[in-house]
Design a binder for these strands. Structure first.
Length: 495
RNA sequence: CGGCGUGUAGCGCAGCCUGGUAGCGCUCUACUUUGGGGUAGUAGAGGUCGCAGGUUCAAAUCCUGCCACGCCGACCA
């Protein structure tokens, strides 16, 4: 086994992550602290996420629109909790011009009358717009999504997981009733569950956030929580029921069937480029990325192998035939004809890039009119299948792609199950499990916000969510307060 | 904003203590070789040593100031 440029996960997960980003050419740092350059291969992952979501948004009746990057400072001040939540991390534009400073440099000139905040999220400017768009109950529901970048001035950043500028979609909807708005909130959460489970092969736990972790200005915040390869949690998408907080602040009113003025109920929901980080950390191994076929920019890499010139022609001919057939069938396939690299190098190269299937074609395969297929979700030789016939190659490959898709999901699920701990009667056990095992700690919980803070401070474990559909079980004893409760919460270390 | 570090080739670093011709690995270019699990060789390319000032015959090296970045703490999709 040759040297690898990737730090083993067990040695230092954080370095492993950064190594993968570099080696697989996903992203790199930029001259601006906390901002990253998303390279084509990394951007392709975002595009895959975007395509899945955009299609589902439209299927569920939403329309895309675009709102300004700049938000008047006064807008942000209209919803009290919202201000408090975001004020500390806003970038502000105060000037409109640069002029020579007399020392060869430039200095800001002509101050703005009202400073403009670069959107950290768009509830306010969209609230303002919705107030103009909504007059009658016939205008509802109003179902809008925006694909955009936002800026949050974060103290500590990590590529994809937390950057100062990030790409995301933010859905914003307005409804006549609380019930409809809540239904929408949960419907979109479910779209996120589907994205994770059915496309990204990441099992997630949909749940409600505790009051502490709630979005600034929301009545309820729902989340999908995924487990990464180091057993930490990653909040991978959120959906908020905003009640009438923003409609009150921005005057989003309508006349109902009975000619009575009513405030709308709004929702907002988002998935960001953080999800790319989830894709990397949920599946990756010591050889690099492992991408689920449905999200992989390249699903099949064909590596031709030859020794002598006369072998080369025959090998390339068969490789080309395989390429044509797969491409014809709509499979994202790459024929690796790079001359100066050895097959071994290429094997490792495509594995690092997480390509689900590798097809090897050498002289022996030409002779047998077959190929060798290597499946990325199984390590080394275990993943290899010899003698896959060229006849019906497309069907075979499609079958293998399904297998990798399912395999990655099952592995991620098994990993999560193995790292979820439920038998935690008291604080001592909680502490012991947190220290020695980590992962998800599923407990009865009746603690206060302050109790939550204390746990975060002492044990680095945060309240991830109250899993949906598990809150109506039998009574149990809260491990922290000792109170009887039906509430079940998950605690974990999180990004 | 507090604590600790680091700035030398695209990237990663040595050299600094003890001042004296700017080095190593990777990368990159050309050619050759190799090819079923990260081939090897030859020849090349690439640097205002973060910036400014000072000491000195002489500064990457010593001194002063500044700037930038990284890690750790309070915030977070």
């Amino acid at each position: 086994m040759a040297e690898t440029a990737i730090t083993p996960r067990s040695e230092d997960f954080s370095r492993w992550y950064l190594d993968v980003l570099r080696e697989a050419e996903l992203a790199e740092n930029s001259p601006v602290r906390g901002c990253m350059v998303i390279r084509p291969y990394g951007y392709a992952l975002w595009e895959a996420i975007r395509d899945v979501l955009d299609r589902r948004f439209k299927e569920t009746g939403h329309q895309n629109a675009y709102f300004p990057l700049f938000i008047p400072k006064s807008y942000l001040e209209k919803e009290a909790e919202h201000v408090e939540g975001f004020a500390k991390e806003c970038a502000i534009v105060t000037h409109s011009r640069l002029e020579a400073d007399g020392e060869g440099g430039l200095k800001p000139a002509s101050p703005l009358e009202e400073p403009l905040v670069i959107r950290p999220t768009s509830e306010t400017i969209i609230g303002h717009t919705f107030a103009r768009w909504v007059n009658s109950y016939r205008d509802l529901p109003l179902l809008i999504n925006q694909w955009a970048n936002v800026v949050r001035w974060e103290m500590r950043t990590r590529p994809f997981l937390r950057t100062m500028e990030f790409l995301w979609q933010e859905g914003h909807t307005a409804h006549a009733t609380q019930a409809e708005a809540m239904e929408e909130t949960l419907r979109m959460l479910d779209v996120y569950v589907e994205l994770a489970r059915d496309f990204a092969a990441i099992p997630v736990i949909p749940g409600e956030k505790s009051a502490n972790e709630r979005f600034a200005g929301a009545v309820n915040t729902f989340t999908i929580e995924a487990m990464m390869g180091n057993a930490w949690a990653l909040q991978s998408g959120t959906s908020h029921y905003l009640g009438q907080n923003f409609s009150r602040a921005f005057g989003i009113q309508f006349l109902d069937e009975n000619n009575v003025q009513q405030l709308v109920h709004t929702t907002s929901w988002g998935v960001s480029t953080r999800f790319v980080g989830a894709l990397i950390m949920a599946h990756g191994d010591d050889k690099g990325l492992r991408l689920p076929p449905k999200m992989a920019p390249i699903q099949v890499a064909i590596v031709p192998i030859w020794r002598k010139e006369d072998e080369k022609a025959a090998v390339l001919q068969q490789a080309q035939a395989a390429f044509d057939a797969l491409k014809q069938a709509g499979i994202r396939v790459k024929l690796d004809t790079r001359e100066h690299l050895t097959p071994g190098f290429k094997f490792n190269d495509w594995e690092m890039r997480g390509v689900p299937l590798r097809v090897e074609i050498g002289p022996k395969d030409v002779e047998k009119q077959s190929v060798v297929v290597a499946r990325r979700h199984l390590p080394g030789k275990d993943g290899k299948i010899m003698g896959v016939s060229m006849l019906g190659l497309v069907e075979h490959i499609q079958g293998f792609l399904d297998e990798v898709q399912q395999g990655l999901y099952q592995q991620a699920l098994a990993f999560r199950e193995a790292n979820t701990h439920t038998d935690i009667p008291d604080v001592a056990t909680f502490q012991k499990v947190a220290d020695e095992k980590g992962g998800f700690l599923k407990v009865y919980w009746a603690g206060s916000n302050e109790d939550e803070d204390k746990i975060k401070e002492d044990l680095k474990m945060t309240h991830r969510c109250y899993p949906l559909g598990e809150q109506d079980g039998p009574l149990g004893r809260c491990f922290y307060t000792g109170k009887q409760t039906r509430q079940i919460a998950i605690f974990a270390r999180a990004y």
